[in-house]
Simulated scan of single mutants.
Amino acid sequence: MNVGFIGTGSMGSLLIEAFVSSGALTPGQIAASNRTYAKAARLASCYPGLKAVTSNAEAAIGRDIVFLCVKPHEFKTVIDELRSVAAPEQLFVSITSPVMIKVLEDQLPSKIAKVIPSITNRVRSGASLCIYGTRTTDEDRARLENLLGFISVPLRIDERYTRIVSDLSSCGPAFISYVLQCFVDAAVEETGIDRGQALSVATAMLRGTGELLTAGGMTPEQIQQRVAVPGGITAEALQLMERELDGVFGQVIRTTHAKFREDLEKVGFSFYGEEVNGL
């Protein structure tokens, strides 16, 4: 299998690093381009055999799968470069949530999929969310999910839920780590405990909680019930959190969805001169 990457920013480089370190791909199977060529060249120097190329078309030609790892406002320019070289048998995979499958199927003759990766894929964990266009076959889906299976748990989703599952899977690590950071900072400020020690304890707790929720088969509610003895310290603190955090996560979701709709509209105007009906 030969794979192309267009865009080697934060997520593009993360996917390349994860695929290579997991053994899913060898560097020699990868070609990569970036708007700033030096970034692709740096990756090639880290992974001898990886081919850094100067044009997006060169990264795509002859590749079985091509990952499009660019920002929404860059998509129109990239697609214009690829339209003349994209082949019907190729699978183009966007990792950009506001770019709809239908838009890409309108613009390219190839098979289209969308994947929402997560920073957790860097440690071969978490989910990768998969959405498929009308031209993909069972073989295409199996091949992509086999590749993603080296670094994640591939989960098929309906495109109408793109934003909310992205919140949970892709944005979620940032949200949870922010809560953990606030917890640790408060511990240091209130008690004077060494921050490194507090962070070590808290991250070990987070990892263990993740195990309880997965391998342990427990739900969030069950964990709270087991830890919070009625009338005890944890129960009292949970009551405080319920009062103070009431509605916060609803606001978080409304904020991400509003930004998503804004980006969706911009992508639609860039391709068609009008808004694309989205999610």
Rank of each mutant, 00 (worst) to 15 (best):
residue 142 A to Q: 10
residue 161 Y to V: 15
residue 188 V to R: 02
residue 212 L to M: 10
residue 250 G to A: 11
residue 152 S to E: 12
residue 98 P to H: 05
residue 188 V to P: 12
residue 150 F to Y: 12
residue 174 A to T: 11
residue 51 K to F: 02
residue 263 D to T: 01
residue 257 H to C: 09
residue 108 L to A: 09
residue 116 I to F: 00
residue 69 C to V: 09
residue 122 R to M: 02
residue 42 R to V: 13
residue 131 I to N: 10
residue 121 N to I: 10
residue 234 T to V: 15
residue 89 E to Q: 15
residue 265 E to M: 14
residue 138 D to F: 06
residue 60 A to W: 00
residue 26 T to P: 00
residue 279 L to E: 08
residue 213 L to R: 04
residue 48 P to N: 13
residue 29 Q to C: 13
residue 169 S to R: 00
residue 224 Q to L: 06
residue 88 P to C: 14
residue 144 L to P: 08
residue 264 L to D: 03
residue 105 E to F: 09
residue 236 E to I: 05
residue 165 V to A: 03
residue 7 G to S: 06
residue 62 G to W: 04
residue 10 S to C: 04
residue 119 I to G: 05
residue 173 P to R: 05
residue 101 I to N: 06
residue 179 V to K: 02
residue 133 G to Y: 07
residue 206 L to A: 15
residue 39 K to G: 12
residue 212 L to H: 06
residue 278 G to T: 05
residue 223 I to P: 12
residue 103 V to G: 08
residue 117 P to C: 12
residue 253 I to V: 13
residue 235 A to P: 03
residue 237 A to V: 13
residue 260 F to A: 12
residue 35 R to K: 02
residue 164 I to M: 03
residue 7 G to I: 03
residue 107 Q to Y: 00
residue 95 I to S: 03
residue 207 R to T: 15
residue 66 V to R: 06
residue 6 I to W: 15
residue 197 Q to A: 07
residue 182 C to T: 10
residue 104 L to H: 06
residue 14 L to S: 09
residue 211 E to Q: 10
residue 195 R to M: 03
residue 79 I to G: 12
residue 28 G to R: 08
residue 270 S to R: 09
residue 157 I to W: 07
residue 5 F to L: 09
residue 34 N to Q: 08
residue 70 V to H: 03
residue 42 R to D: 11
residue 93 V to R: 08
residue 230 P to N: 13
residue 122 R to G: 08
residue 262 E to N: 12
residue 225 Q to W: 03
residue 239 Q to F: 07
residue 110 S to P: 12
residue 52 A to R: 03
residue 274 E to F: 01
residue 39 K to R: 15
residue 58 E to P: 07
residue 231 G to T: 10
residue 168 L to R: 05
residue 106 D to Y: 02
residue 84 S to W: 04
residue 125 S to G: 15
residue 132 Y to M: 10
residue 8 T to A: 13
residue 90 Q to H: 12
residue 26 T to D: 11
residue 198 A to Y: 07
residue 105 E to A: 10
residue 262 E to A: 14
residue 85 V to A: 06
residue 204 A to K: 14
residue 198 A to H: 00
residue 140 D to M: 00
residue 231 G to S: 10
residue 127 A to W: 05
residue 110 S to D: 09
residue 201 V to Q: 01
residue 132 Y to S: 07
residue 128 S to Q: 02
residue 256 T to G: 02
residue 243 R to P: 09
residue 170 S to R: 04
residue 180 L to Y: 06
residue 113 A to T: 14
residue 87 A to F: 11
residue 142 A to L: 08
residue 203 T to D: 06
residue 130 C to L: 07
residue 224 Q to Y: 04
residue 196 G to D: 13
residue 11 M to V: 13
residue 49 G to C: 08
residue 66 V to Y: 04
residue 138 D to L: 14
residue 10 S to H: 07
